[in-house]
Write a protein that binds this DNA or RNA. Structure first.
Lengths: 209, 209
DNA sequence: GACTGTGAAGCCATTCACAGCT
DNA sequence: AGCTGTGAATGGCTTCACAGTC
């Protein structure tokens, strides 16, 4: 792989560009300029070109980019040219909502299993899925070839279930718990901290008052 | 206010520091050093000191910081020394989960109302709340003195409900829809894009393979 | 004329390293 | 001796500006 250090912010924007291109395809657009993408997603046109330049030359000077072609490149760069299998640990409100969230499936993330420790949750159904006990974690990870683990358990249990998932062979973790998790270098971790997001809003409201 | 430009990343870390300090208070710690905070949340000690330096001098050289005192300062800086009233638009899986999420209430964010357009959702109850039709948006915003609006509607409706909230007087928006929203300068916006998060994980898995 | 691709410049955040207190 | 607070150095991302191409 091109493994030159790519800024995190660039990767996030590529994801957003790809969604915008998908939208343009739906509208029947054939070509698009960096300026148009920029306006569509709220960045500068130079930013769009720089982001793409990390991965090659996809456009034609004086013309722009072919929408479907660029979309294909981006999906490949992002690793979305095939499906990823997902397991969710924690069948509370948030875990259950994520298990049923259509947005994931649309982008190729397939939730294969959802586990919990709570007796009263085990056995209940979420769409096609049945909530299973935590004991089957390792078995399910291997059986379904799970790539991504989603943590939606309370803070005090987050590190423990994370360790268990890594033990079982999961290589990427999406953490919704409000705890800083420790993972080995070869495991990819991202945190979605809902409270932090609200608190940044709060800070900004106070500032501009 | 101290309105010198504070880096966004700094604000996010302050939120995380404050949670770690809360944890230390629970463990009965009296004082803490920047190095200890750093280890606790996974940053450098210089980073911790620089972040705090934007807002004043809170520590004692040779000693460290008083845990409860620093916690108090951070909560004040973040604007968490009082409650914020929240409205959620969209009573789908995600909106419902957020309406019931305890983590918000613990940090002073009180969900006062949840609205939807879908006939079949209106009237159903979520804890203390009843899902109401979108028509009452303006009325509820004024009645409950709503500060924060949470958008959990499908992409194609996101901009419309955002405009309506701003019209009604909401000054901060937390957007969970996969759309780039346009808001006036005096409205604070944050995006929590679940798919983008998974796609960044995907990218990193492909890179390190 | 329009638009891409890119070196250079500018800007911003993080890390370093040490003076200053306790 | 231990730890904070901070100017200086570093590193990294974004914007500028223009040569190159259609």
């Amino acid at each position: 792989m091109k493994a030159f250090k790519i800024p995190e912010a660039t990767v996030q924007r590529l994801s957003i560009y790809s969604r915008y291109l998908h939208q343009l395809m739906g509208e029947g657009e054939d070509t698009v300029s960096s300026g148009q993408i920029a306006r569509g997603v709220g960045v500068s046109s130079a930013q769009v070109r720089k982001d793409l330049a990390y991965f090659g030359e996809f456009g034609t000077r004086g013309v722009g980019y072919k929408v479907d072609e660029l979309y294909g490149y981006l999906m490949e760069i992002l690793g979305l040219d095939h499906e990823w299998n997902v397991i969710i640990i924690g069948a509370g409100k948030l875990g259950s909502a994520l298990a049923l969230y259509q947005g994931f499936r649309e982008r190729g993330f397939v939730v294969k299993a959802i586990l919990d420790v709570a007796e009263n949750k085990i056995g209940s159904t979420l769409g096609q899925l049945r909530v299973e006990p935590l004991d089957v974690l390792e078995k399910r990870v291997k059986e379904y070839d799970i790539h991504v683990g989603v943590v939606t358990v309370p803070a005090q249990e987050a590190q423990k279930v994370t360790d268990q998932m890594i033990q079982a062979g999961v290589k990427a973790i999406l953490n919704f718990s409000p705890r800083v998790l420790k993972v080995p270098h070869d495991v990819v971790l991202r945190n979605v901290d809902l409270s932090v997001n609200l608190e940044v809003l709060s800070f900004n409201m106070v500032q501009y008052k």
